[in-house]
Amino acid sequence: MTSTLDPATRADVGRVTGADHGREPEDVAARLLDSAAALSYDPMSEVDWEAPLDPDHFGLNPEWSTLYGTPLWDEMTHEQRITLTRHEVASIMSTGIWFEMILQQMVLRDQYCGKYAESDFQFALTEIADECRHSLMFARACRTMGIEAYVPRRASRELGRLFKTIAVSEAAYGGILVAEEVLDVMQRDWMRGENVLPLVRTTSKIHVVEESRHMTFARAQMREHMVGTSALRRRSAALLIAVAARVIVSNMVSRDVYAAAGLDVDRAVRAAKANTHHHVMMRTSSQHLMAFLADCGLLTTPAAAIYRTVHML
């Protein structure tokens, strides 16, 4: 089977910019509904799930590996690097599933007994349907690579339960934006990586195209909720979003991926934490997000300090 996805450049459709700034949220949602009708995918038919995995292909661009650029990476065999990157991408996909389940609950709660005829309500449910497909896509991708799911640490799982319970309005959509924006930049590289598994390239393209709409929707919702808010609420939301970002980013790559690659786990964790190359990559992937938060008044001094702990700023 050959994927019917268009070339990589088409995946830039809907890239979040300032184009929707100033538009009414209902107008933005209506445009996004039209976009979803014109450009959406079914991963079960778009991805060639039966294709053999080329043993020479990475799970993600090596430059995105947490160990790339370290002395430990130089010591690793090619096979270890392949294994590591496949487990890293599986860990990131697993984290994506975890947060997509949180996201779905928050969006559904936000739209509970909403105005069903309005585009806002209808796109919110469209987004939930997209996220369900994405979670199934990531789960099947992990299984196809022969990798068990990686789950966040116990403390993070409980913080996730708390966040989805207490986060509302701009804080909820801010948490959603954090997860989607960082992954978006990574996947735009992965989907063009000639040395990356076609399975990962295709799933990345699908996610990039559809998540671009979700990010636009989240931005519109945040701008609407921030109008006329008090300084206290703004500072509280800024802090909650930053904490959510730290939890999400710190769980993206499980320490267990290093054991899967046959590495000394403690040494690998230390090397990853000190890896300045990866820190730069994370800051690059967060540039759009940080600019947007600053524009909304949500990049306060305490929040910025938290973002720096995970090298997003």
Rank of each mutant, 00 (worst) to 15 (best):
1 M>F: 08
3 S>E: 05
4 T>M: 07
8 A>N: 12
13 V>R: 15
14 G>N: 09
15 R>A: 06
15 R>H: 11
20 D>I: 04
22 G>D: 06
23 R>E: 06
28 V>L: 08
29 A>D: 01
30 A>C: 04
31 R>I: 11
35 S>D: 13
38 A>F: 06
39 L>K: 12
40 S>G: 10
44 M>V: 03
44 M>R: 11
49 W>K: 06
55 P>N: 15
58 F>R: 04
59 G>M: 09
59 G>W: 05
62 P>E: 13
63 E>G: 07
65 S>Q: 10
65 S>V: 11
66 T>Q: 10
66 T>P: 07
69 G>Y: 13
70 T>D: 12
71 P>T: 09
71 P>Y: 11
74 D>H: 14
74 D>V: 05
77 T>N: 01
77 T>L: 02
78 H>F: 15
78 H>Q: 02
79 E>P: 02
81 R>E: 12
81 R>F: 00
85 T>K: 01
86 R>P: 03
88 E>L: 01
93 M>Y: 12
95 T>I: 02
98 W>P: 00
100 E>K: 02
101 M>Q: 02
104 Q>Y: 00
104 Q>R: 04
105 Q>M: 00
105 Q>E: 14
111 Q>K: 04
112 Y>R: 09
119 S>H: 02
121 F>H: 15
122 Q>N: 07
122 Q>R: 14
124 A>N: 10
124 A>D: 07
125 L>K: 00
130 D>T: 10
136 L>Y: 12
137 M>P: 15
143 R>Q: 15
143 R>S: 12
145 M>P: 05
145 M>Y: 12
146 G>F: 12
146 G>H: 10
147 I>C: 06
152 P>A: 15
153 R>C: 11
155 A>P: 08
156 S>G: 10
157 R>A: 11
158 E>A: 13
159 L>P: 03
160 G>P: 10
160 G>F: 07
161 R>Q: 13
162 L>E: 15
164 K>P: 05
164 K>A: 11
165 T>W: 10
167 A>E: 14
170 E>D: 08
173 Y>C: 02
174 G>P: 13
177 L>E: 11
178 V>A: 04
179 A>S: 14
179 A>C: 03
182 V>Q: 09
182 V>P: 05
187 Q>E: 10
194 E>G: 04
194 E>W: 08
196 V>K: 03
198 P>Q: 13
201 R>W: 00
207 H>P: 01
207 H>F: 08
210 E>D: 07
211 E>K: 05
215 M>C: 05
216 T>V: 10
218 A>G: 02
221 Q>D: 05
225 H>Y: 14
229 T>I: 13
231 A>K: 15
231 A>L: 04
237 A>N: 11
238 A>T: 11
241 I>D: 03
243 V>C: 08
245 A>S: 08
253 V>R: 09
253 V>Y: 15
256 D>K: 07
261 A>Y: 07
261 A>W: 06
267 R>V: 12
268 A>V: 03
269 V>D: 07
271 A>D: 09
272 A>H: 01
276 T>H: 03
276 T>W: 04
279 H>P: 00
279 H>I: 00
284 T>I: 02
284 T>P: 00
288 H>I: 00
290 M>T: 06
290 M>W: 03
296 C>G: 03
296 C>P: 01
298 L>Q: 09
304 A>K: 14
304 A>P: 11
305 A>I: 01
306 I>H: 10
306 I>F: 08
309 T>H: 04
309 T>S: 15
309 T>F: 05
310 V>Y: 11
310 V>N: 03
313 L>T: 10
